[in-house]
Design a binder for these strands. Structure first.
Length: 498
RNA sequence: GGCGAUGUGGCCAAGAGGCUAAGGCAGAGGACUGCAAAUCCUUUAUCCCCGGUUCGAAUCCGGGCAUCGCCUCCA
């Protein structure tokens, strides 16, 4: 049973989808007037992980993420840069995909844009006007908030609460200061479309209602976004969509917490944001993704480079155990027959029990409102047990010729477990054969460097065999200064870039 | 002012009434190693404060204190 925290009810609820085989998800995407920053990346990674988990549980997903490409901020920036607003937006959408692909985010099924859904938006507004939920004044159309009885049900506010705070723009045209624009009359020369009310463009909230209804219909499963969207954006989406359709809009509302910097919200207006592409110059995408999932998605997450560095060291442990597993499997399949002493049957049995336990606890963690922090802890536990197991069976001294099959089989099972973990969390990229690809540094992909390293290691090995420790250490220390780490293992030395 | 979230070891962070309070980073000791690295083992917490409910509370309730968010564009 999968449980989801629903902002609408403020409770964890059992997931029951509209269609038993398919789950429909709408995620609010960015307003594209800049490269995405880490705060933008969080919901993308989080809800991608939600989707990955649901997929692993056998659901088909219909996953929609919009782009807001018609908006004041885009228009203003385009004016500054003397560009066409839609061309500017299109540019940042291309750049968006570069960042998102780097973060190993599975592509949505559709990426609807406001500019491509003006007819649907106008139709929805017309419907609202017909029903008396909206009214037009001087070429603009406003939503009549007082007409929607449930206004405030998502964010837990009442109209009176809001009235008192009243940091709302004063606009003489509105019947109530809390009414919000569905259609904005165009200023002269501005980006606009024809409509029954004259030239103009959509207000901010109507796009998501229109596009979600178009692609997912009423009563779809999950609507997600950052918690700052709860009010007014999502509240208004509900009001519009439900006033028009007279049916429930979305069933589960999910909101992720913020990224903070020095405990303050990372945002464009505070100018304390870090672009994903800049962070990726310093840290691997796996590290960034691992960091974003290291905390429960509803909690705030503080950003600084030291924290990422700590996360990276943790991730290295996972990588080490994975590589050790791969190497061992390779050694075993080359030898075809192997060692393993008589105690191994019991060791294998114990290890097998643990593997089953890890699989179960990982699943339980994810099923409980997508507790990735706990799921990651299970992965660490599994890595430690795997290391201990490999140590116990002492694969280093591959000599004897018994029990090859059970050992090989159980290591394959461990491998599959790790692949499953990764399939859900999406930390490491996988190739076509769904093998984990540890992103290597450029120099490790360079054949010349590889050949030279093989040579250097052979020379050092010669020195070690002659007990010429001075030369051996000199080579290792010098390489370290080049950020190349040498590790001596029973199977020989290996190297990696740090 | 209204609404909401959070406060757990040096740092990060799970746990939401009952086994010794997960996991990671950092630190210490040990095993392994020619020395290292990697790895394994051992080791660090009366859970912000004060009351209350309960046989039993980090977990529920009340009251403080502190931090943060939303109420204006923001993921």
């Amino acid at each position: 049973m999968i449980k989801i925290y629903n902002t609408l009810t403020k409770n964890k609820e059992k997931l029951q989808t509209r269609d038993p085989e398919q789950i429909s998800i709408y995620v609010c995407g960015p307003t594209v007037y800049n490269y995405i920053h880490l705060g933008n990346a969080r919901p993308l990674v989080v809800f991608d992980t939600v989707r990955r988990y649901l997929t692993s549980k056998g659901y088909k997903t219909n996953y929609i993420q919009n782009f807001t490409d018609v908006d004041d901020k885009i228009i203003n920036k385009a004016r500054e840069e003397k560009k066409e607003p839609l061309a500017l937006a299109a540019f940042y959408i291309i750049e968006y995909f570069k960042d998102v692909d780097a973060l190993n985010i599975i592509r949505a099924d559709h990426y609807p844009r406001v500019s491509e859904h003006i007819p649907e938006i106008i139709a929805l507004i017309q419907k609202l006007v017909h029903k008396g939920s909206a009214y037009d004044v001087k070429g603009s159309v406003y939503f009549r908030v007082r007409n929607f009885a449930n206004y405030g049900k998502l964010s837990g506010r009442t109209l009176d609460d809001l009235q008192v705070g009243a940091r709302v723009e004063i606009n003489e045209d509105k019947q109530d200061p809390l009414d919000f624009a569905l259609w904005k009359k165009a200023q002269t020369g501005e980006l606009s479309w024809d409509s029954p009310w004259g030239a103009g463009r959509p207000g901010w909230h109507i796009e998501c209602s229109a596009m979600a209804l178009k692609y997912l219909g009423t009563g779809f499963d999950i609507h997600a976004g950052g918690c700052d969207l709860m009010f007014p954006h999502h509240e208004n989406e509900i009001a519009q969509a439900e006033a028009a359709s007279e049916q429930q809009f979305a069933k589960y509302w999910m909101h992720n917490g913020f990224i903070t910097v020095n405990q303050e919200k990372m945002s464009k207006s505070l100018d304390n944001f870090f672009l994903v592409r800049d962070i990726l110059k310093q840290f691997s995408a796996a590290t960034v993704r691992f960091y974003l999932l290291s905390v429960h998605y509803r909690s705030p997450l503080d950003f600084d480079a030291q924290k990422l560095a700590a996360i990276q060291r943790g991730l290295e442990r996972l990588i080490n155990s994975w590589q050790l597993l791969e190497e061992t499997l390779k050694t075993l399949s080359n030898q075809k027959q192997t060692l393993v002493n008589n105690a191994d049957a019991e060791i294998n049995r114990q290890f097998d029990i643990k593997l089953q336990y890890f699989e179960k606890t990982f699943n339980t963690a994810m099923a409980d409102d997508f507790n990735t922090a706990l799921a990651i802890a299970v992965w660490f536990d599994a890595a430690r047990e795997l290391n201990a197991y490999l140590h116990q069976i002492n694969v280093a001294n591959l000599k004897a010729t018994i029990n090859f099959t059970p050992t090989f089989k159980i290591l394959k099972k461990a491998q599959q477990l790790f692949l499953n973990f990764n399939q859900v969390l999406g930390i490491f990229k996988t190739d076509d054969a769904s093998r984990i690809v540890i992103s290597k540094s450029e120099i490790q992909d360079d054949h010349l460097v590889n050949n030279l390293m093989t040579l250097i290691i052979a020379i050092r090995q010669q020195a070690r065999e002659n007990k010429d420790w001075h030369t051996a250490d000199m080579i290792r220390d010098s390489l370290k200064k080049l950020a190349i780490m040498i590790e001596d293992t029973p199977q020989g030395a290996r190297w990696k870039k740090r």
